[in-house]
């Protein structure tokens, strides 16, 4: 069993659209804080207005991704992706880095993949190339992160998780999670669960349908856990948006 390309693309649009809309709403709610980090000669008030305009455009574009393009807008579908891609570049330039870290990076790659797939009206092979791009970025992201952790002694011994849970320096930790970190055994088990899941993730491309669903369900649980424990809510949508491509690609 596999996912039809049109269904995979539609699901990807919906999920990434929600992710972009969520980020837009969060940035609008804290635009003063973001404006203080904008590079340029203008005062923060100017950048707050600049950000508001830019984010409202992104919100409008993401709304189309969420509701779907329909028969008439589908003709200019690539324009929407290019608009989001260029606005992402503009934000990176002004903030001297991504607005949302890793979630921004994956969102950008999904948009690139969707843009390529949208050009499939010219050449149907581009639909597969676009979905393949998204699937490849997803697999690479998990695998490279897993190998990096596997090579690090603090991660292998569970100390990285313990250090993370005991401090608010990197992320504001969920209160019950901090208490759990007092258990060395639990930290060790959690470390190896993450390492093994990430390193084994490329297998998702080879597994049968049921195996894919199981692996992607584990991935979703991983990102939901990160959102609860560390506040990384945007990762759910950025990485979740790659899952339809993984279901399509066998």
């Amino acid at each position: 069993m596999t996912l039809e390309p049109t269904v995979a693309i539609r699901a990807t649009q919906l999920l990434i659209g929600i992710g972009i809309a969520l980020q837009a709403a969060e940035v609008l709610a804290t635009r003063s804080a973001h404006a203080r980090l904008c590079i340029g000669k203008h005062p923060p008030d100017f950048w707050a207005q600049w950000l508001t305009a830019k984010i409202l455009v992104r919100l409008a574009l993401s709304a189309v991704l969420i509701v779907g393009f329909g028969k008439y807008l589908q003709v200019i579908e690539p324009v929407f992706y290019m608009g989001l891609i260029f606005s992402s570049v503009g934000l990176v330039i002004r903030l001297n880095g991504p607005l949302g870290g890793g979630s921004d990076s994956m969102t950008f790659q999904v948009l690139i993949g969707l843009l390529i797939a949208a050009l499939g009206v010219a050449n149907p092979i581009l639909v597969q190339v676009g979905l393949g791009w998204i699937a490849a970025q997803s697999v690479l992201s998990y695998f490279i992160a897993g190998v990096a952790k596997l090579r690090n002694e603090n991660w292998r011994r569970g100390l990285a998780i313990r250090n993370l849970m005991r401090s608010n320096a990197a992320y504001t930790v969920f209160a019950p999670a901090r208490r759990l970190a007092n258990s060395g055994t639990l930290c060790l088990a959690a470390s190896w669960a993450i390492i093994l899941f990430e390193v084994a993730f490329p297998a998702v491309l080879l597994l049968p349908w049921e195996g894919k669903l199981a692996m992607l369900s584990a991935g979703l649980l991983f990102h939901i856990t990160n959102a609860v424990v560390l506040g990384l809510n945007r990762f759910i949508w950025a990485w979740g948006a790659t899952y339809p491509a993984l279901l399509y690609f066998t």
Binding site: L22, Q23, A25, E26, V27, A29, T30, A33, H34, L37, L95, L99, G100, G101, N168, A169, A170, Y171, T172, V173, F174, A175, P176, A177, R178, I224, A227, V228, G231, N233, R234, I236
Partner: peptide, 21 residues
């Protein structure tokens, strides 16, 4: 640490703080 689980849905302040960090 925070007891809030609501941030799984919306975490404006947390993400702004993360950007600053």
């Amino acid at each position: 640490p925070t007891p809030s689980i609501r941030r799984i849905f919306f975490n404006a302040d947390g993400n702004a703080e993360l950007l600053e960090k």
